[in-house]
Design a protein around this nucleic acid. Structure first.
Length: 378
DNA sequence: AGTACCGGGTTCTGCCATAAGG
DNA sequence: CCTTATGGCAGAACCCGGTACT
């Protein structure tokens, strides 16, 4: 941090209650700088850059190097609104650090006008109950808010997503964790929903709105994925598991919804590895199907992690059939499983007799249980 | 009291290619 | 032609506890 930044930071702390950026007065902030004749450029890349803009950005706490790497042409623009943007964000409760970080990571944000920002914010507020929630998202993913300039599309999106009849809780969660959904074109979102409808129809389902709703509720990331990917994953699962229509409907709108947005090669590799590994441990194809139905997230596990866990459990004295019947044990890390297996084996715990539920307890419950076992031992 | 079932929380953006548009 | 807007991609678990059931 250079001296100027230190001074600005101190200054902004003193000015805290006043929502004003340090670079220019409020009344001027619409287009708040002009080209500056001073300081000869040092490199060709920076020779076209607007020096007064650069100065403003520095004052605002922007990482100019980062901004340059991300969107170099923005730094050459003559008319920008960095101060207006900063003041706007301050007025919504953003800190100086947050504003600097936002602009550093998505410099194009400074080209958005005050009117545009205001309108866009109001539209987001249709879903979110507080400014703070929106700021949090902007801080996490500036691109989601700023990438599109099409407020009309955003408005349609709000209407469209609301029309899906998700519970307010799910809708908010969707936009919170997958804010990109909001900046998709409404056509893109609609296409995904229509894909889900058409899959439901092809499986002979009766309630296709409900089907789509169930999948989106369980997997709020799905609207940020390509239909190509989702389609490929669904076809792969139906094919490999040889599902009947009814089974497919149950799996897809149930536990299987969660795995539809894995990248297709990942899903494929993880599935094929799972199948191979289970068979090498003496399982049948039916066991694979059973496992995927009862614990779809097993397909999130990379082949290395999965094989590691299964080996660890089997070596620790757990029967593979017990794992298939109680797949939740795979939720835990190899380290946790290893630790629990070691402790239990030292107490001569018999998984065959007592089952394996003890392995998938929360830490608190496990420790309580363990104390009792140890008391019994003495 | 102990166990089974189930859903919840965390977090999932940042980069690239290309189409669109001036 | 240039820049901007948009679509698409990779990466890939672990843990907790409420509550119904027995």
């Amino acid at each position: 941090m250079n001296l100027q930044q230190v001074l600005v930071r101190l200054g902004s702390r003193i000015l805290q209650p006043v929502h004003s950026s340090t670079c220019i007065t409020d009344s001027m902030y619409r287009y708040c700088h002009t080209e500056s004749p001073e300081s000869p450029p040092t490199t060709r890349a920076t020779s076209l850059e607007n020096q007064s803009l650069l100065k403003n950005l520095t004052v605002l706490g922007v990482d100019v190097m980062m901004a340059r790497r991300r969107q170099p042409t923005i730094l050459q623009k003559v008319e920008t609104n960095e101060c207006g943007l900063a003041d706007f964000l301050y007025s919504k409760g953003a800190s100086r650090e947050v504003v600097g970080s936002i602009i550093s990571r998505f410099p194009r944000a400074i080209t958005r006008s005050a009117e545009h920002l205001d309108q866009r914010w109001k539209l987001w507020r249709n879903i979110f109950t507080s400014n703070a929630k929106i700021i949090k998202i902007l801080h996490r993913s500036p691109e989601s808010f700023f990438r599109s300039t099409d407020n009309e599309n955003l408005e349609k999106n709000v209407a469209f997503l609301s029309s899906l009849d998700l519970t307010p809780k799910h809708l908010q969660r969707l936009v919170t964790v997958a804010p990109r959904t909001f900046s998709n074109s409404v056509e893109l979102n609609r296409t995904m929903v229509e894909l889900l409808h058409s899959i439901c129809v092809s499986l002979g389902g009766k309630d296709c709105e409900g089907f789509a709703k169930a999948i989106i509720s369980r997997n709020v990331y799905i609207l940020t994925r390509s239909t190509k990917r989702v389609k490929a994953n669904i076809h792969f699962l139906l094919e490999e598991l040889k599902l009947s229509d009814d089974e497919a409907l149950v799996l897809l709108q149930g536990p299987g919804a969660e795995i539809l947005d894995l990248s297709h090669p990942t899903l494929k590799n993880n599935f094929l590895n799972l199948q191979e590994k289970l068979q090498s441990l003496g399982c049948q194809r039916a066991d694979v199907k059973k496992l995927v139905f009862s614990y779809s997230t097993v397909l999130f596990l990379s082949s290395a992690t999965l094989n590691n866990k299964l080996d660890c459990l089997v070596e620790g004295g757990v029967d593979i059939k017990q794992i298939v019947n109680k797949p939740k044990v795979l939720d835990f890390s190899v380290a946790t499983l290893k630790h629990r297996l070691d402790v239990l084996n030292s107490l001569s715990y018999n998984f065959g007799v007592n089952g394996v539920s003890i392995l998938d307890m929360s830490k608190k419950r496990f420790d309580t249980k363990l104390k009792k076992l140890q008391m019994f031992e003495e």
